[in-house]
């Protein structure tokens, strides 16, 4: 997921909404695979991932992209992902 995030960061900076949207989809489907485990074992981290992830899903649909908000949420998500064991 973190690789996708790095890619997404670049796409947001380049204002490429289409690619950013694809990244968002990838993030969502990756998360689905292990979200149950995180929720069971690290309930606090679960929320920290879900919140920015949700915001990102909305953000990529807005045109033009609000780069500031998206970048902020990407950072938040990245930090949360780092906490996952």
């Amino acid at each position: 997921m973190q690789d996708t995030l790095t890619e997404m960061q670049k796409n947001v900076e380049a204002n490429d909404a289409a690619k950013a949207a694809k990244n968002a989809e990838e993030l969502e489907s990756s998360w689905e695979k292990f979200e149950d485990d995180v929720k069971a074992n690290q309930a606090d981290v679960y929320g920290k991932v879900e919140d920015p992830l949700g915001a990102i899903q909305t953000g990529v649909k807005e045109t033009p992209l609000d780069q500031a908000v998206l970048k902020e949420q990407i950072v938040k998500l990245n930090d949360a992902l780092k906490e996952i064991k």
């Binding site: 920015p52 949700g54 915001a55 990102i56 899903q57 909305t58 953000g59 807005e62 500031a68 908000v69």
Partner: peptide, 14 residues
């Protein structure tokens, strides 16, 4: 969940 994302996003706006 989608709408929750919209709420999060709206609050994150500056």
């Amino acid at each position: 969940e989608e709408t929750m994302g919209e709420v999060q996003y709206a609050f994150a706006k500056n």
